[in-house]
Computed example of a mutant assay.
Amino acid sequence: MKNIHVIVATGDWAQDQLRYRRHRLAEYLQNHPDTKEVIWLCPTPVQKGKSNTRLSNGINQWTIQDLLPHKVFRFGRYIDEFHRTKLQPLLLYLKKAQEQYTINLWYTFPGFPILSEIFPWNKVVYDCSDLWTSPINGKNSIPANFRKNIISKAENRIVQKAGVVFCTSEYLRTRILEKLDAEEKVFTFENGVEFDLFANNPTRMKNILPVHFDGTVLGFIGGIKPKLDFDLIKEVAQKKREWLFLLVGPDGTNDHPKFKNLLTESNVLWTGSVAPSDVPKYMNLIDIGIMPYSSSEYNQAVFPLKLFEFLAAGKSVLGMNLPSTKKYAEESVYTHLDTNDANQFINVCEQLEGIKNHENYIHRRKTLAKTKNWNEVFEDMLLLV
């Protein structure tokens, strides 16, 4: 029997033009010889056109409209009453197929928890990539606590229904085991990398860096979100005017004043959102990859997608407040700091600056990244499903 895989995702496929773990998982399953169909099920603030659309990659996207368009109403994604009826067309579609195909449900965030209970799924899998109950900015508030309680209840239901749970960090695995005392079905699989895409793509994006600039470029690629330490980047930028800070990705801060303030620095350049196919070209503009995360409970659980992408491109990397990545710390390859001290940041980058083009270190970085290819990660996961 071939499989139909339903993947519960956080937003529509092209949202912010970013490619997350769930996108790679969906494409891996879509290309698997045992797959009949992959359905990308996601919430949408505003319904545009039909609720189901066949994407150019063959994946079938189904959208469920939020309670109301404003972001504050997204809590409805975790409450049965707001999506029970809207899920019925999908369930009718699946019921017609269940005699011919094995139908599996993959949660990549704890939305639509009732879905795990109202259909006879062959398998339910939870692929947990974030500490969903924790505010991304690290700040507690009444709305944050309200959101935490709702999401925690939804996640508990999904964890109980899941036959297997995958986590992107040991911290997340520990948190899941607090909800589910069953070590035999909870596994850690860190994020991987499309190795060939970054390791064998020498093209540089043109007309981005200032004319005649020949200094060191420190770069971050990904969603610009409150989990980053904008104050730290600003302080370092002011102290090291000869460095250029290149930020590549959409603004996910909701116009946070600290991010806006950072962009006033003459040696900070923000590109905004870029096409996923262009990301390697931007990567090739960077000398040192930076992951300047702030200290928060949310970031304790994070395993950044960009770590192995930087390394696959041969770039040295500096990460901050990312305990899940410490095990990969290696001289001239990856440096991790448990502090947001600007002087330590500068000292590390000055050391990395001196060996940025050293062939032996470039080879070592790529060698490490090659062991984390996405297809191999997903092959190992699928063996446990």
Rank of each mutant, 00 (worst) to 15 (best):
L92D: 14
P143S: 10
I142L: 15
L41Y: 12
Y361S: 08
M1R: 11
N207E: 14
S316T: 13
Q15Y: 14
T108H: 09
R173K: 15
I233S: 01
Q160F: 05
F213T: 07
F109G: 08
K86Y: 05
P120F: 11
K179Q: 14
I151R: 01
S141M: 09
F198N: 00
A182R: 03
D278I: 00
Q88F: 10
A329L: 00
W13C: 08
D34R: 10
N343F: 08
F230W: 09
A9S: 15
C349V: 06
N254S: 10
K95V: 10
R157A: 14
K326Q: 15
A9K: 06
S51N: 13
F378L: 04
L285H: 03
K327D: 07
H336G: 12
E265S: 12
E379G: 02
E376Q: 14
K306G: 10
F198S: 00
P143G: 07
G111W: 04
D80N: 13
R22H: 13
K372M: 14
V248H: 02
E190H: 05
D12W: 01
K206R: 15
P69I: 14
W62K: 03
L311C: 04
M291E: 03
A97E: 13
K148W: 06
I233P: 01
H5N: 15
Q17W: 09
H212Q: 15
I288D: 02
L29N: 05
V38P: 04
K326S: 12
H212R: 13
L131D: 14
Q351N: 09
E309V: 00
N201T: 00
A9M: 15
D341W: 05
N137E: 13
D127T: 04
L383I: 09
